[in-house]
Amino acid sequence: MSTVLEVRNLALGYPGLTLFRGLSMDVERGTTLAVLGANGSGKSTFIKMLLGLMDPLAGKLTWPDGQPSEIGYLAQMTEFDRRFPIRVRDLAAMGAWKGFGLRGRLDSGTNAKVASALDAAGVLDIADRSLHTLSSGQLQRALFARVIMQDAPLILLDEPFTAVDQSTEAHLLSIINQWRDEGRAVILVVHDLSSVLDHCDQALLLGNGEARFGPVGEVLTPQRLVSQNYMSESQASWMFRGAAAEAVRV
């Protein structure tokens, strides 16, 4: 595995408000990293910093193989205009926007890739439907098709399973697993611990001004989840009910 991104002594926040500091980590190819934390802990801010949309308060990002020209990105659905008059296939084609530039036409090769991406995301049969007729799950699948079209070595997903049903979540998780198997690095912001424990290699837990990074089993311990305000003691006790009671107490 090679490193896509090195983060050293990162502090993130806004003027007068530091969300966390002292984060150092390596993002490896062929791994999935889950970012967890309470509301306002800096998860989406962390993603936007990686995209270059905001600067860190301190620290350094290094791209050992050079900064990728394309970073796959799925924003929260709340930031998307669902009434915009385009079809599902046009939305997916947006992912190849850099490839065909301002005026280039979509050639047969790109159209074939779009069809393939839509098929992989399970929305080929509704490729010609307008976005405003889609359910939340269908829209999220279409947005995943756009990420597939981006064909990026690093993929950032901000709450990809919000407002989707179980079968859609399972399908999207299978796509994420495929990205990992293809050697891409996937960073996803999630709230549901079960999807993290079963499908992610590493975790970044934010909260209470701290950032903990490491293998899922080492970072997502009951004590840390409670001390970093991710869940209450009673919630941790219930979730880790097989573990010893003292392991949950902070």
Binding site: L53, Y73, A75, E79, F80, D81, I86, M94, W97
Partner: peptide, 14 residues
């Protein structure tokens, strides 16, 4: 214009 109108955050990242 289409991309920035439909999905401004995605466009900013692009």
């Amino acid at each position: 214009l289409i991309t920035s109108t439909c999905d401004p955050v995605f466009f900013e990242a692009q």
